[in-house]
């Protein structure tokens, strides 16, 4: 990526932006260089994750929320990263989130990019974080990240987002428990969408009760507030954040003002408590660790010849070596080279 391209991107050229996203996604050398060149310009955007069960209304909510954001007096620029699963059989993907965002297609202050998981677990794609950096550098004030329809394990988004919104739908009786502990814990804001359906108020009360129990137990709001002790926070001990539970009807844009209010309140909380900086630090720490792991993997893989690997694998197949001792053996062998 040359200086002119960086300039074009920062000036708001959408074609450049879109091409860079593709280069980054395919993990090409050009993409790596682009991330390198853009990194100094990142660190401004408010990253908001939206997760929840398949069909809960995440995309519809993103649509309504973005419209609301764009109606604000200072109309922030909004980027949307919509992640859908790659088929494990064909390697292809059907990316359908745009269908629910018809209102945003004409707005030059909004950029929607769909991406497939391409085998990554955790509800995001490997390049989702890199996408958020590109959008950040390109001057998008808010980055909305819609995960794949998530169950309990797809909680990767918390490592990326400043604010995580968990979306559920009204349930009755036992299936209110549909929202599982894992995903409940990551919520900074809980939304019961499809509140036009019966049972919304019970679901809200139930979730509030669940949250308050957790709140009373740990003395903090889940994992988020637990690490806010740093120099900024030390001056003024922060009240822990108790995730609000809101009702919305995304397809009628109802409850969206309150949702925006909650997002703004959370942002204020993050900044005033010092949690924002803590999260940034943690995210960057994770990014370095990931890069180390990747580099080491690449390094070893380049050194272990297919023949050596095959021979060792055969020993494991014949139960002469365990996978663990095979790994030790391979690493020692190439270290000696």
């Amino acid at each position: 990526m040359n200086a002119q391209e960086v300039k074009n991107l920062i000036r708001g050229d959408r074609l450049t932006l879109s091409r860079i996203l593709s280069q980054v996604e395919s993990q090409s050398e050009a993409g790596r260089q682009a991330l390198e060149a853009l990194f100094p310009f990142t660190g401004r955007a408010h990253k908001i994750g939206i997760t929840g069960a398949p069909g809960a209304g995440k995309s519809s909510l993103v649509n309504a929320l973005t419209r609301q954001l764009r109606r604000q007096p200072d109309a922030p620029k909004v980027a949307i990263i919509a992640v859908d699963p790659t088929s494990p059989f064909s390697g292809g993907a059907l990316l359908g989130d745009r269908v629910r965002m018809p209102d945003l297609q004409r707005d030059p202050g909004v950029f929607i990019r769909s991406m497939a998981t391409r085998g990554a677990l955790g509800g995001l794609a490997a390049a989702t974080e890199a996408f958020s950096q590109v959008f950040d550098a390109a001057g998008y004030d808010i980055i909305l990240i819609e995960t794949v329809g998530a169950g309990q394990a797809e909680v990767e988004v918390v490592n990326l987002a400043h604010t995580t919104i968990v979306v559920d739908t009204p349930g009755t009786g036992d299936d209110i428990q549909a929202i599982k502990a894992g995903i409940l814990e990551i919520a900074d804001i809980l939304v019961i969408n499809k509140a036009d359906r019966p049972g919304a108020d019970q679901s809200v009360r139930y979730l509030q009760a669940m949250l308050e129990m957790g709140y009373a137990r740990s003395g903090t709001a889940g994992h988020h507030a637990s690490e806010t002790v740093n120099s900024v926070a030390a001056e003024k001990p922060a009240e822990p954040w108790l995730p609000p539970v809101l009702k919305t009807i995304a397809i009628e844009s109802q409850g969206i003002e309150d949702l925006l209010g909650a997002i703004q309140a959370h942002r204020k909380f993050l900044l005033e408590s010092g949690t924002w900086q803590v999260k940034e630090r943690q995210a960057l720490q994770k990014a370095i660790q990931r890069a180390i792991a990747q580099n080491l993997m690449d390094f070893w893989e380049a050194k272990i010849t297919p023949e050596l690997f095959e021979a060792t694998l055969q020993s494991v197949v014949e139960r002469k070596l365990s996978p663990e001792s095979a790994a030790q053996y391979l690493l020692q062998t190439i270290q000696g080279l």
């Binding site: 959408r14 879109s18 996203l21 292809g92 359908g96 629910r100 004409r106």
Partner: peptide
């Protein structure tokens, strides 16, 4: 196309030519 290994972005009904071009641009 998905089953053939491609990544398919579906836009839904009633798209104007402008919307289609914008989507093609954003999705590269």
């Amino acid at each position: 196309l998905r089953d053939d290994g491609m990544e398919v972005i579906y836009t839904g009904l009633r798209q104007t030519p402008q919307m289609i071009a914008e989507a093609a641009l954003q999705e590269d």
